[in-house]
């Protein structure tokens, strides 16, 4: 025995053919879940009182589709107001002018602090306290004025309510994006003779977009669902249309199923878009 202890036997080079580890817990949980799913589906899908015929009937009905269109339009307009307002608020918040910074902070405090539903109702009933909106010198002559009700229609009240509320949240997102840009960028731009505003527009905001866009995608998806709140001021969006139909035929659950279907379709499409955008901007 002269070789023992000198060299270890060489490790075998073929692929390891190990016996796989058993996962009994997975089988048990699959069985339990499967049972629950079948039980719930049976109670919903196969429920004779659940009128699937009604769901099919209204899924593509003009009233529902037009409601969906209004929902999408409202999402778009409210986000436009929200993003534009958010950028302005963030720039003011970071302004060296203490008054403007305080104004922005105050705005954000108010619009994040008051429930959105209250804000929507507030804009809707604005005409009760401000019956006329016009242009003129305060306490002086007025050049023109119109009834508040003519300008603040249900749709504008909804866009204002959703958009101004969104702006407060977007402001924080934009601010986070702007502070993420290295201060050396500002110094380099200033050293080249750019003014503060030029630096903001050409150097800071384009770079902040990387950080701003992904959470903004989230906000769009969230906004799409939040628009359903405006049924409280009777804007004919998806939920309001659905509600209008079931108040006549009393098929609440069937019609709310139609609403769920369209909200899910829209959020799925938006989520896919957001996923694509996030991949693009994470590079």
């Amino acid at each position: 025995m002269t070789t023992t202890g000198q060299t270890a036997p060489p490790a075998p080079r073929e692929r390891i053919q190990a016996v796989p580890l058993r996962h009994p817990g997975r089988w048990v949980s699959a069985a339990v879940l499967g049972f629950l799913v079948i039980f719930l589906l049976q109670g919903w899908v196969a429920n004779p009182r659940m009128e699937w015929k009604v769901v099919g009937e209204y899924l593509f009905s003009p009233a529902v589709l037009s409601g969906l269109g209004t929902t999408l339009l409202l999402t778009l307009l409210a986000m436009l107001v929200g993003v534009a307002g958010g950028i302005v608020l963030a720039v003011l918040r970071m302004s060296p002018n203490p008054l403007l910074a305080a104004l922005s902070a105050f705005y954000i405090w108010v619009f994040r602090g008051v429930p959105l539903l209250v804000q929507l109702l507030f804009w809707y009933f604005l005409s009760a306290v401000v019956p006329k909106i016009g242009l003129g010198v305060p306490w002086g002559p007025t050049f023109f004025e119109v009834d508040t009700n003519l300008i603040i229609t249900q749709l504008t009240a909804a866009v204002l309510g959703l958009g101004l509320h969104e702006a407060a949240y977007m402001a924080e997102i934009v601010r986070a994006g702007m502070t993420s840009v290295d201060h050396g960028q500002t110094e380099a731009a200033h050293a080249l003779g750019l003014t503060r505003f030029q630096t903001l527009r050409k150097i800071i905001l384009p770079q902040a977009m990387r950080v701003i866009i992904p959470p903004t995608g989230n906000q769009v998806v969230s906004m799409l669902k939040t628009t359903s709140l405006v049924f409280a001021i009777a804007v004919p969006e998806l939920l309001t249309s659905i509600q209008g139909i079931y108040s006549r035929n009393f098929q609440q659950v069937a019609l709310l199923t139609v609403a769920c279907f369209w909200y899910l379709v829209a959020t799925t499409v938006l989520n896919a878009g957001q996923h694509y955008i996030e991949r693009r901007f994470s590079r």
């Binding site: 050396g184 960028q185 380099a188 200033h190 050293a191 080249l192 770079q207």
Partner: peptide, 19 residues
């Protein structure tokens, strides 16, 4: 900003605009 136009500056960390 106008005063800085005639003065060029080069930084330790380059500070090129990455976009």
């Amino acid at each position: 900003a106008a005063q800085r136009v005639d003065i060029g500056m080069v930084f330790q960390r380059f500070n090129l605009f990455p976009h």
